[in-house]
Structure formats: C-alpha cells, structure tokens
Design a protein around this nucleic acid. Structure first.
Lengths: 154, 154
DNA sequence: TACACAAATGCGAGTTACTTGCAAGTAATT
DNA sequence: AATTACTTGCAAGTAACTCGCATTTGTGTA
C-alpha cells in the first residue's frame, strides 16, 4: 500500500470536522492533534496547559463538549473527579486504571458490544444503546509493594 | 416493642462501619441509610440536599471519600460531571444511562469479572484488578422521539 | 476573490463541585 | 468518667467547568 502508516494529519482532522458539521478552526485542530498523539486519555486541564497561549480554557471546554456530542471524541471517567477525553477512532477498547498512581493502560479484550441486544431485551425502560464504558481498577506493578499506599490517586 | 426495619438496618450499618474500622457516627449512618433506600446511584449533591440541616456538606464529602476507600460504597461515574455513589453490596451489576434525561437502570447481565485474569495476562503494567465499572449509554423509551434531543443530560 | 453570516473564539466573571484548616464535639476503649 | 484519637461543623478556599458578550473567522454563495 502507498501509505505505510495510518496517520491523522492536520488535513485528515480538517476533513473529519467538516464531515461532522463542524468548522475546522485552529483551536479544534490543535485539540484533535493533541489527543491524536497522546496515548492515554487526557484531562481537560492537561489540554488547557499544553495549549496555553494558543487557546483559551473556555474554548477548550466548549470544543470538548462539541466534539463529544458530534462523536469525534469520547469522554472517559476514571474516578479522578474530572473527565478525560480520547479520540473516538471506532476501535472498541477499555481501560485499566491504577488506584494509586493513576496510570492508564488500554485493554482490547472483552467484546461487550455483542451483548447490547441482550441487555436491551432485559431492560424495562431503554430502547437503544449507543455507547458503553468499561474501566478496570487495580494496582499497577510499580505501585505494588509490601504495604498498600493508603491514599489513592490525587 | 415492634422493631422497625429501618432500625434493624441502622444497626446493620453500625456493624458494617465498625467492621471496616470506622466509628459509627450519626452522619455516616444517615448516609448509608439514604444510599440503602435509594435505588439509583446518588450524587453528592442529592445526599447533601436530603441531609440538609442534619449534616454539613463537607462532612458528606468526607464520609463519601472514607466509605469509598473502606469499600462500603462505590463511586459510579456516569458522564454527568459529578460523581454518583451506591452501596457496595457485593453484587456485580452495571448501569444503563440515558444520554438525554439521565435516567439510570441497573443491568445484571455480562459477567466481566470472569475475564479479569485474562486481562491481567495481557497487561504490561498491571498486577491486580480490584474493581471494574461498566456503563451503557443510550436512550430511554420516554426520550425516544421523532427528533433526537440536541442537548444531552444537564 | 469577495461577501455575508452563522458559528466559533477570547476574555472576564460566574457557578458548581469538591477540599481544607481548625476549634469543638463524640465514639469507643480503659 | 476519663482519655484519646477520630469526626464533625463552620467558614473560607481551590478546582473544574460554564456563561455573556463583543469580536473574529471559516465556509458557502456570488
């Protein structure tokens, strides 16, 4: 194949934004590019700090909300008292989260999507499932020690 | 002479707190009783409002943090920008969340716990899984209409 | 390529969610 | 009932997120 690497270039994000009915503005491209090159889901704060001087925090929050509603990104909740975000690439994956240091690892096992229909058949009030979130909480190898750390992730 | 059910569960919570190394104080019992009789996971705000006049909000937040660390309650994140809490009864269950009205329904299918070992075998950095959270997002029957509601849950 | 205009941004101020410091109170042990 | 470490209530503080509004800009149409 001609392209050796699936890379989300600036123009790729530009196209994605337009396809989803969003204007391709510089702040949006910055947010998407940053999420694209970061492996772990990012907090709003991390995005704001990284883009300081280039984009306002209110704008970052607005962009995150918009892109989430349009389905370009996913909100990930990791019990850290603030949301994290990651690119929605269409790949189904979940997360392993360390209760002590907050480390995040992707998990690709466990095909929960297949059970959506079964869940809806058993549900009293729901007619449609669009997404699901699966997070595993535990202890990573660098946090494992003789004594468990008393206060979990900040 | 007749002992009410509420009083019985009160002493049950009292016992649970002591077993987990917590003093059985009135505010803690109030929080546990409230979570015990509410079917949906509750937000801190809902607890604070319900317990207004009886307990301070700082106390409620401190109690939630303590009980969570001690394993008496579970934090549930539903992409609502604030945490929810539910009693940790040892039963494995997950949630169906309506993207529009926020309605929550319990789900008891899907035995994800069984795959913990398989996940750890594939993990590079994790040695132990203690919990997991599985949330399904969709649309409940009362929100389903000809036109999807543009702005999801407040 | 120029134009019009809805959409988006930047900035400041505001709100909500949650935390902290500290004096006073209290559950559990003795 | 005395002790003591743990909890609470209050007030003030910080973090996370939102809003209002004037200005700017991307994009479809001319």
């Amino acid at each position: 194949m001609a392209k050796s690497k699936i890379k989300e270039s600036g123009s790729e994000f530009r196209r994605m934004l337009r396809e989803h009915g969003c204007k391709a503005t510089p702040p949006r491209l910055l947010v998407l590019e940053l999420l694209g090159k970061t492996k772990e889901p990012m907090s709003a704060q991390a995005l704001i700090e990284t883009l300081a001087g280039k984009t306002d925090q209110a704008t970052v929050y607005r962009i995150l909300k918009t892109l989430k509603h349009r389905g370009l990104i996913r909100q990930v909740d990791l019990r850290h008292n603030h949301a994290h975000y990651e690119l929605s690439r269409g790949d189904e994956h979940h997360h392993l989260v360390c209760n002590h240091c907050g480390k995040i690892e992707d998990v690709r096992l466990c095909d929960v999507g297949a059970t959506h229909q079964a869940i809806l058949r058993h549900s009293k009030h729901f007619s449609k499932i669009t997404q699901h979130a699966l997070e595993f909480y535990g202890v990573c190898t660098s946090c494992r020690g003789p004594e468990p750390i008393s206060e979990p992730h900040p």
